[in-house]
């Protein structure tokens, strides 16, 4: 009989992500992992992952290229979210333009746009150019480009592949209703209805959100990785429970900031302190301050602020180190390079 037993409840892809990670990083002699699958996953949308998928696959030895081919993979270079006015915004995973002299590109763009009319900032994003191209480049080619990308999988196929991986790693997989809950030392519940993530007593709840593509993946993978990194005997882990909950709640706060930015009519009027800080500093000087445990990257915050009409009132003084003519030439070249690279990738 196992000394410790974890039961994971969720749809195939939810239990699959948790199960694959824990089978690889937690399961051992004297431990059991059971995945109770709710087969009723009616979500038609693909399962979108963020760029952290490459690290996670690498950690547990999952072959990304094979899964990409087997599970209907498609590269994702930006997540698309809805805003308050019903329009959509693309949140790119990689920076706009390229930084120069330690300064982010958009500061140069801001300065250049005061000198002469410039194409919109979004035109300087290789991520967005590739995301919006008719054909996405193959995986091997993308890996050579200076862009971060996640992968959108067919939900059912990816879920089943992860379940198979977990099973091969020693987990047992049963249909929901057939699990043995009474013996579990810990039940990990993947729930879209939970208000907040929490690990308390014998239950760990992952609060799933899916309104922004990639979030569901983030919550699942982050929960599993964090649980493993705080590994302790399940009968004696109160400090680890508190730490897991603290970090998961902190991340959820950052997600709530982004959600409010996208949904509120006036982002500068937000009552969320961290969002207010971001918006105010961005307006004041074009910088985007970050908190501990951010989920979204600075380019995603920049894209979201930009899409909501929040604009800096000035550029960073350090951008003035570049002479006007040189600055304008550089921007022209950069835009040309992005267009050329996108064409090359399309033609390949």
């Amino acid at each position: 009989m196992s000394a410790e037993r974890i039961l994971v409840r969720g749809t195939p892809v939810q239990a699959g992500v948790i199960g694959a990670y824990l089978a690889s990083r937690w399961l051992a002699a004297g431990r059991a992992l059971e995945l109770a699958i709710d087969p009723e996953d009616n979500t038609a949308a693909p399962f979108v992952t963020r760029p952290s998928i490459h690290r996670l696959h690498g950690e547990i030895g999952l072959p990304t290229d094979q899964l990409f081919a087997r599970c209907g993979g498609s590269p994702v270079l930006a997540a698309e979210a809805q805003t308050a006015d019903g329009s959509s915004v693309q949140l790119p995973f990689s920076a706009f333009g390229v930084p120069r002299g330690g300064l982010e590109f958009h500061q140069y763009w801001l300065r250049a746009s005061r000198l002469s009319e410039q194409a919109d900032l979004t035109e300087f994003s290789l991520s967005l150019a590739l995301q919006n191209a008719a054909h996405k480049p193959p995986l091997a080619q993308l890996a050579q480009l200076p862009v971060e990308f996640g992968i959108a999988f067919d939900r059912a196929a990816y879920g089943n592949a992860l379940l198979s991986f977990a099973k091969a790693g020693g987990a047992s997989v049963v249909e929901s209703g057939n699990e043995q809950e009474q013996d579990a030392d810990l039940v990990i519940q993947c729930s879209p209805d939970a208000g907040a993530p929490k690990w308390h007593g014998q239950e760990l709840t992952i609060a799933l959100e899916s309104d922004i593509p990639g979030l569901e993946w983030h919550h699942l993978s982050s929960a599993a990785r964090r649980f493993a990194s705080l590994a302790a005997p399940l009968s004696n882990c109160a400090p680890e429970q508190a730490e897991w909950t603290r970090l998961a709640v902190a991340e959820n706060e950052r997600v709530a900031d982004m959600r409010e930015l996208l949904s509120i009519n006036d982002p500068l009027a937000s009552s969320r302190p961290a969002l207010q800080r971001k918006a105010e500093v961005f307006v004041a000087c074009g910088r985007i301050p970050t908190e501990d445990y951010e989920v979204f990257t600075p380019p995603e915050w920049l894209a979201a602020l930009w899409a909501r009409g929040v604009r800096p009132r000035r550029s960073d003084r350090m951008a003035e180190r570049l002479p006007d003519a040189q600055l304008l030439d550089w921007l022209d070249q950069l835009r040309g390079q992005i267009a050329s690279l996108t064409r090359q990738v399309q033609a390949a």
């Binding site: 990194s229 705080l230 590994a231 302790a232 004696n236 882990c237 109160a238 400090p239 680890e240 508190a242 730490e243 970050t290 908190e291 501990d292 445990y293 951010e294």
Partner: peptide, 18 residues
């Protein structure tokens, strides 16, 4: 105090970004 409690239990260290 919270850091010390976490570490003394099973050697885990609370990390921050900033």
């Amino acid at each position: 105090a919270e850091r010390l409690e976490l570490f003394t239990a099973h050697g885990h260290v609370s990390a921050y970004d900033h």
